[in-house]
Design a protein around this nucleic acid. Structure first.
Length: 414
RNA sequence: GGGGAGAUUCCCGAGUGGUCAAAGGGGGCAGACUGUAAAUCUGUUGGCUUUCGCCUUCGAAGGUUCAAAUCCUUCUCUCCCCA
């Protein structure tokens, strides 16, 4: 089998392939151009979106050429795959803005050099499509009967599927055709929920161009307890540091289940396979070493080494008391407010550890709140400057959430 | 266009005039147990004050009533059937 494909398979990327042998042969013959579609439907990608891009790097490093296709056109209608409800339509301006941000994020990770990795936007050929021509040239190749038999549409037969979404598959197929014509793109990779769309693109190319293209899908990454990977209390694990701080990002991976460590090391890091296996086979408490490594590696890939180091230092400070506490999430508080004395409830709300006073109260009543390592017994306890240790108070909510509170620096008058 | 069903707190889903901040489940949070894991058990889960209490919430806006998530009117949206 082709080397690059072997790597993907070894690392757990392969879910389905339209023609494994054919693809392997094609890749053996020389560099293959492939693409990944991304819908700019939000302001930031999350870790789940990155699986195909990890694969892209593996393939690129093996000499192949990857295209990140931004769905600036398709985002205008919404992909029904994997959704149980109709997607909200997003304004064109928002899509363009998202596209710009997403490209920037991907560029950090992939590095679009225009040679081995490049971007394209399907807005370029979709935005001004002529409806009648499209129906004659493309639409006639699609059978509604067949489309309805696809899982993605079948689920939606229950809850309702609008015509606009029903067209998504045609557009995505058309994308593949365009990329084939423009870049000689022969392979589409993506999440397994894209299988139906990928296959129909391949068929379309076969019918119109008489050429054989390929599709390869990756498993939808879930955690061992069946949840979608990358989901946190606050929503998804975003790449944007404003939306998910590097520390939170790090902690997510630091806290994965034992059963997920090996799988995640293989998919979300570029550590050699043997090293992943070694780390993944550690037992019991020793496995924590592997989790720490995993967290550092992924954070470093997404946010850079510096941020990864900081997150690691903060985590060690929070949980072992030996790292750098100043790297923990820190909140500033007005000097005046502190001098007047701040109640425990307000303190926890101000630190962001509790969204409301009621929650802060609950936290304290249930014994989950502490300041400087001392459990708060009475919610009416008041804190002031004398409770600062080395210029900061360390608040803890539960076992895992930590915040540091410092006095706001005196503002220079303007 | 005609007919029918529906919109409930983070999600699913009960609730058809007061006893409803609203059952139950899921999820979340906290505690115990631990390895910053999983599983399990317990508690908790709108806001403000905790003492009584007050405020906001049941698609939107009005109305009836001492009193509405529950009744009426209009509107918006979703689904189903017929055309």
């Amino acid at each position: 089998m082709n080397d690059a494909l072997t790597i993907l398979q070894e690392r757990g990327f392969v879910q389905q392939c339209t023609d494994f042998e054919g693809l392997s042969k094609l890749m053996d013959e020389g560099p293959v151009t492939f693409y990944i579609g991304v819908d700019p439907t939000g302001p930031s990608l999350h870790i789940g979106h990155m699986v195909p891009f990890f694969a892209l790097r593996h393939l690129r490093d093996a000499g192949h050429r990857g295209i990140a296709l931004l769905g600036g056109g398709t985002a205008r209608i919404g992909d029904p795959s994997g959704k149980t409800e109709m997607r909200k339509l997003i304004s064109y301006e928002a899509i363009d803005e998202n596209t710009e941000r997403v490209v920037k994020q991907l560029d950090r990770f992939v590095g679009f050099d225009g040679v081995h990795a490049l971007t394209a936007n399907n807005k370029d050929w979709l935005a001004n499509l002529n409806y009648i021509e499209f129906l004659r040239d493309i639409g006639r190749h699609f059978s509604v009967n067949r489309m309805l038999s696809f899982e993605a549409y079948r689920i939606r037969m229950e809850t309702g599927l609008s015509f606009i979404e029903f067209n998504y598959q045609l557009l995505q197929s058309y994308d593949f055709l365009q990329l084939y014509k423009r870049y000689n793109c022969r392979l589409q990779i993506g999440g397994d929920d894209q299988w139906g769309n990928i296959v129909s693109g391949i068929e379309l190319i076969r019918r119109i161009e008489g050429a054989e293209c390929y599709g390869l899908t990756f498993p939808l990454v879930t955690t061992s307890d069946g949840k979608k990977m990358g989901k946190t209390e606050k929503g998804a694990l975003f790449l944007d540091p404003e939306m998910t701080s590097p520390y939170e990002f790090f902690q997510y991976f630091r806290n994965v289940s034992d059963a997920d460590v090996l799988r995640f090391l293989l998919m979300f890091t570029f550590l050699p396979v043997e090293e992943c296996r070694r780390l993944g086979s550690l037992k019991d408490a020793a496995l924590n070493e592997a989790k720490e490594r995993l967290a550092w590696e992924v954070t470093s890939l997404i946010h850079g080494k510096e941020e990864a180091d900081k997150a690691l230092a903060a985590a060690r400070a929070a949980f072992r008391g030996e790292g750098d506490a100043t790297q923990l999430p820190t909140t500033e508080i007005d000097r005046a407010r502190l001098e007047a004395g701040i109640g425990a409830l307000d303190l926890f709300v101000a630190s962001g550890l509790a969204p409301s006073k009621n929650e802060a109260r609950r936290l304290i009543q249930q014994g989950g709140a502490s300041v400087n390592g001392r459990k708060i017994e009475d919610e009416r306890q008041v804190f002031s400057a004398k409770d600062m240790v080395e210029g900061a108070m360390m608040l803890r909510a539960g076992k895992k959430r930590v915040a540091r509170v410092v006095v706001k620096k005196e503002r220079q008058n303007t």
